[in-house]
């Protein structure tokens, strides 16, 4: 990956210590610093659904070690998470819950669709599976594979980091009006019978 340009020349900081105080000031635009810190402290929510969840856990474990990217803190509470890795097939019964968890996450929030089932329904083109999680939540990065290996997931995560850092994702979100053209029906007014959540159209 490319070096961070915003920090200027930081290569001598470690050598100099306090002596280099005069030339060790970091100057950057505040947006760049914000983007940089967003990219580097991206905590995923535990949202394991199916086979991909096993690979997601394997990625977090000793051999592949997501901690190298500051990503090992899988938060159980969506309130503390920035990134939702949708790992596995999303059933019609799970879709409203997925949306609810997404809504509970704090902005800015990102979504990785892990595996073909989450991305497009995969081989399960049938009544039970939502054909692509992007009908429910806006997806930022799609990871292919069934299931994607840990390397693929790491590549997806690094792609996400890079896109957050360059501001590409925020820009895209402003362009398409805050989401992937998601359309969720408003809940029925008080007193009427409860309707199932209507999933969006593209």
């Amino acid at each position: 990956m490319r070096r961070l340009p915003i920090l200027g020349d930081v290569s001598r900081v470690a050598d100099d210590g306090l002596e280099g105080l005069e030339h060790n000031f970091v100057t950057a635009r505040i947006e760049d610093l914000v983007k940089w810190s967003r990219a580097r402290s991206c905590w995923p929510a535990t949202f394991g659904l199916a086979c991909c969840a096993i690979e997601m856990m394997a990625t977090g474990a000793a051999h592949y070690d997501l901690a190298r990217y500051g990503m090992e803190v899988f938060r159980a509470s969506p309130r503390q998470a920035d990134l939702m890795i949708v790992a596995g097939r999303v059933s019609q019964k799970m879709a409203p819950i997925l949306r609810q968890i997404y809504d509970q996450m704090m902005e800015p929030k990102w979504v990785i669709s892990m595996g073909v089932c989450a991305s497009s329904g995969g081989m399960f083109n049938n009544y039970a599976i939502v054909q692509g999680v992007d009908q429910v939540v806006p997806v930022d990065v799609y990871a292919p594979g069934c299931p994607p290996g840990p390397e693929t997931l790491m590549h997806a995560i690094l792609t996400l980091h890079e896109n957050i850092r360059t501001g590409e994702l925020t820009r895209r979100r402003i362009d398409n009006d805050g989401g992937a053209a998601i359309h969720v029906e408003a809940p029925p007014p008080e007193g009427t019978t409860e309707q199932p959540v209507q999933l969006g159209r593209r």
């Binding site: 199916a50 596995g88 019609q92 049938n126 009544y127 039970a128």
Partner: peptide, 11 residues
């Protein structure tokens, strides 16, 4: 249960 119902028997 049923949050991961995939319809595999139909498929």
């Amino acid at each position: 249960i049923g949050y991961l119902h995939t319809g595999m028997e139909k498929t």
